[in-house]
Amino acid sequence: MPAGPGAHGADAATQYIPPVPAEGGGGAAVEGFDGLFRDEGREAAPGPGRRRTPVAVPRQRVGGRPPAQPQQQPQFQAPPPPPPPPARRVPPAVIAAAVFGLAVAGLGVGALLGDGKAQNNDPAAAPPKSDGSNAADAPGGTAPVDPARPQAVQLDKLLADANDSRTTVIRAVDDIKDCKNLGQAAQDLRDAARQRKELITRLSDLKTDLLPNHARLSAALTKAWNASADADTSYADWADDAGHDKGGCKDGKAKPTDDAADGNKSSEEATKAKESAATLWNTIAAQHGLTRRDKTQL
């Protein structure tokens, strides 16, 4: 039961408040109601013979005064971050209109490009296959490199060396006929013969398989240089005959001998082979822009 007026002096921390009738009829006041207005942490000691009632927060009654709430020290709180801006959504109608516009533009460009021309699904529209002979077909618009050209260039260098001894051979034979410088003439002719043999060896080391008629050309050059070497050797022996035989020279001229005849025969064979080789080579030279040669230059 609530404390009477006489208890006010015994418990200074409480204050007498007339009981508020309960809703819907009378009823006893809530026990412990006088503890609602005590300060937290400063409760009075219970009197003798009186039990300590736990403090309960009653709900506000109709027509009654709300109980005073204990004041709490305000605490600082950081303001919440601003919410992110809402994602901008493109209306579906705008997307559909854009797609439709692109489709119409594509059809218009295709109609302009394909007007009067074969389409991709037309078999006649397939580009012709290139054989690599057109310069525009090569990367960068440059003409493709002919794999046979390096072989032609190497053979051209070899043929240029074949003409080195021609002047020396002609002069040596003329000296023999006039019975002059016979020893030197014989030496020069034998040196020329060795050079012809070296040309044959170098020719066998070259690759000519990509050149047109390469087998016939190699055979003609080999035959020509072998015959020239035989002729040079025979003429050198003729010089020896003229120098050792007292009757080898008569009236300033060397007498004809079997060695001279053998030399002439071999020289004719070499000339015929050189004519055939020159014809085959000049075809290759014209194709690759190299030096043309006649039989006397081989």
Rank of each mutant, 00 (worst) to 15 (best):
A118V: 04
G63D: 09
A98R: 09
R194F: 11
L113I: 15
P2H: 10
A97V: 07
A96H: 13
L211Q: 02
H214G: 01
A7F: 12
D251P: 09
N226L: 14
G4I: 00
N226M: 06
R292G: 15
R216V: 07
D175H: 15
N121W: 08
L280V: 03
G106Q: 07
L112I: 14
I284C: 05
A231V: 13
L182N: 04
S266C: 03
V145N: 06
V153G: 10
H288N: 06
T222V: 03
D262A: 13
S276I: 12
A185R: 06
I200P: 09
G114L: 12
Q60F: 04
P82L: 03
V145Q: 11
V55N: 15
A270F: 00
N163E: 15
G132Y: 02
N181T: 01
A13Y: 06
A229G: 15
T53E: 02
L210V: 08
Q187G: 08
A87P: 02
Q69N: 07
G6Y: 08
H214A: 06
A93Q: 02
R292C: 06
G114I: 01
A125M: 07
K223N: 14
A220W: 04
A152D: 07
L158K: 14
G26V: 09
Q72G: 12
P18R: 08
C249F: 00
A162R: 02
P21T: 08
K255S: 07
K265C: 10
S228F: 04
D156P: 13
T208V: 11
D146C: 04
D39G: 14
L112F: 09
A219R: 06
P144W: 02
T208A: 10
A10R: 15
P81D: 10
W281V: 08
K207N: 15
N163M: 12
R171V: 14
V145D: 11
T142S: 14
A286M: 09
D137K: 01
A97Y: 00
I170L: 13
W225E: 13
T201E: 14
D188W: 07
A278C: 02
P212L: 06
Q75V: 13
A56D: 10
G252N: 12
H244S: 13
S165H: 15
R89H: 03
I95N: 00
L206H: 02
G141S: 06
K180N: 00
L102T: 07
L102R: 01
D237I: 02
R50I: 09
A278Y: 01
F76V: 13
E31R: 09
G289T: 05
A152G: 05
A56N: 08
V169L: 06
T296V: 12
P127F: 01
A277M: 03
V169A: 10
V55T: 11
A242E: 09
K177F: 08
D146V: 05
I95W: 06
G64I: 07
C179N: 05
A229I: 11
R51H: 11
A152L: 00
T168H: 10
K177N: 14
V20M: 05
P256M: 01
V169N: 07
A242H: 08
E23A: 04
A118T: 05
A231P: 10
T279G: 04
W238M: 02
F100C: 13
D188F: 00
N163Q: 12
G25M: 05
